[in-house]
């Protein structure tokens, strides 16, 4: 798929050359941790049971915040496609002998890469801050792999949805409207921030089917428990399997839609 390499590096170049977007990207994860972590720190007063055995709320929500950071970056992954269209750059790509899908996949992969960088910074910050992230039961290489896989799959899922939406959209405000419509439901109808026991029954029932919950719960399980018990390993593999299947389906869909439908 020639075109994917140069187009992805173009995206990343534009990203790291913009000091403001780089700076906000680094600071935003800290805001999430410090503000959200402090605002809801009293949840730990309910006892460690409600936090699935996490030593503090930061350790508990880290899986959620990692997922949310990925989700929010991914939601915006289609925006640059619309600007490329508006500014005419897309025209140059469409007359080049490259696969049309590489134009879209460049956006997906570059946003996934940015998400990984942000995730690494977030974890480092969580380890540094007082009463922050604590690996009470250790953290193995396998745990790290599971964590990274969950973050990547989540970002692939949502960036393929939102770049596919952007394939035919010509106005940025359209996609901003859609992002505003879905971001809060995706966040709050999930286990990213709150334990299921603290949620209304119907909300908790719905949150079960949200891929944001699958990713948050996966990361949370490995962070809190280190080496997993048989039943924990089973749950993690179901969640990861669900994320992988959904990502595979959406990436395939993105491929066909972008090959066929992308225009100026």
């Amino acid at each position: 798929m020639s075109g994917l390499g140069p187009l992805t590096s173009r995206e990343l170049k534009k990203w790291y050359r913009n000091p403001i977007s780089l700076f906000t990207g680094l600071i935003q994860p800290l805001f999430w941790l410090v503000l959200f972590g402090s605002a809801f720190s009293k949840i730990s007063d309910f006892g460690p049971a409600i936090l699935d055995g996490a030593p503090n709320y930061i350790t508990y929500i880290l899986g959620g915040v990692l997922t949310i950071i990925g989700l929010f970056t991914a939601l915006f992954s289609g925006v640059n496609l619309i600007f490329d269209r508006r500014l005419g750059v897309l025209g140059r790509f469409l007359i080049a002998p490259i696969r049309r899908s590489s134009i879209v996949f460049a956006k997906i992969f570059s946003s996934s890469f940015r998400i990984l960088i942000n995730a690494a910074i977030l974890i480092a910050a969580a380890l540094i801050i007082p009463n922050g992230l604590k690996f009470v039961h250790g953290f193995t290489v396998l745990d790290a792999l599971i964590l990274v896989t969950a973050v990547i799959l989540t970002s692939l899922i949502f960036s393929s949805i939102f770049t596919t939406i952007a394939v035919r959209i010509t106005r940025p405000d359209t996609i901003f409207g859609i992002i505003n419509l879905v971001n809060l439901p995706l966040l709050f109808v999930s286990y990213a921030m709150f334990p299921p026991d603290l949620m209304a029954g119907w909300l908790s029932d719905m949150a079960k089917y949200n891929p944001v919950s699958w990713s948050a719960e996966t990361i949370r399980t490995v962070i809190i428990n280190g080496s997993l018990s048989a039943s924990q390993a089973y749950h993690v593999s179901v969640w990861l399997g669900g994320l992988a299947a959904l990502a595979a389906f959406l990436l395939t869909l993105t491929y066909f839609v972008s090959e066929k439908e992308i225009r100026e």
């Binding site: 020639s2 750059v89 025209g91």
Partner: peptide
């Protein structure tokens, strides 16, 4: 094309290199 198609956020030479990579 009739429209402008070069990327304003890249340098002139970067734009041309990007195009050259499309054509291997």
């Amino acid at each position: 094309p009739q429209d402008l198609t070069t990327d304003e956020d890249l340098t002139g030479i970067e734009n041309l290199k990007l195009v050259s990579r499309f054509y291997d």
